[in-house]
Design a protein around this nucleic acid. Structure first.
Lengths: 167, 167
DNA sequence: GGTGAAAGGTCATTAAG
DNA sequence: CTTAATGACCTTTCACC
């Protein structure tokens, strides 16, 4: 078998990406038809059911598979406007208080500390452009935030995907 | 019942966000324990199985629930570096050729056309900072791209989430 | 490998908008 | 009158021991 195919040496990465060809096929199979069971997987992959089960368990254990949570579409939920907001924060007390403030706002779907002139990059959604202003006001209401620079996403060219990385 | 609780009027939104309280409870239940079946859902929600099934089907039909695909962690796959890349493109032939070029690069996890000085915002990953250069080179190899400005994500403050929008 | 259980479909009845 | 919820029955399929 081609176990540990990649096993790359990638700087400070602590989890090795030990994904072999069977794991990849398993993942792609589950991505295609998430509702099928382990038995069906083993049949399609041409392996014993125990093998499929073991592979699945290990993928979850390693953190490669984070789970099978329902994917929700913000647009269908009424949040048709998406934007990226770059925040500049006061460096005094670190970013944790600001991160806590952001986490309490449901419209903030994601946040990262970043390099460059900004300090934080957030992905936010709103029900309309007018509503976007409300969300931004809510964001900048925190003392720790100096400036917010907003970029609106017009059209989604590539929807979020990870699968191509699997090969 | 409190059906059509939100039913907001949100500009050019064509899909009404008709999520009632039962739908919300169902979604949150599935988010908590994705592996449970429809029968188990119906028991926990205190409704008939057919009801739970019908609600689930309709949520999928409306596009609110995009599916139950496996969530993959790029970090565990060996892609420990994440970055946001803003692209400036030649406006001559539109962005479609560029979008096609980007779609062929697996490390590009997402792409949107945007407002502001840039034209496209991409989320990319790489195995290391050195590898990031390779990915960027691959991106800018397209004729249609004039400039790429990269911002590296240092730490994930808020992991991607949509659930808070459900209430 | 066998067994209890769940998924998925259909149906008639009842209730509510 | 239309839409939804319910409980019942059935067959196939899976998960677990």
């Amino acid at each position: 078998m081609l176990r540990r195919l990649f096993a790359v040496y990638a700087g400070t990465v602590d989890k090795l990406s030990s994904i072999d060809e069977l794991d990849a096929r398993l993942i792609k199979l589950l991505a295609d038809e998430p509702r099928i069971g382990v038995l069906e997987c083993s049949r399609r992959l041409g392996v014993a059911r125990g093998t499929a089960q073991a592979r699945l368990d290990k993928l979850i254990e390693r953190g490669v598979l984070r789970g099978f949570g329902p994917e929700l579409d913000p647009v269908a939920l009424g949040y048709g406007v998406m934007a990226f907001v770059t925040l500049e924060i006061r460096q005094r007390r670190g970013h944790q208080p600001v991160a806590d403030h952001l986490a309490a706002i449901p419209e903030i779907l994601e946040a990262h500390t970043i390099t460059g002139t900004g300090d934080l990059m957030c992905r936010i959604v709103a029900r309309s452009n007018a509503d976007l202003q409300r969300v931004i006001d809510q964001i900048v209401s925190d003392e720790g935030i100096v400036r917010a620079s907003t970029i609106i996403a017009l059209e989604e060219q590539i929807h979020y995907r990870v699968l191509p990385l699997v090969g």
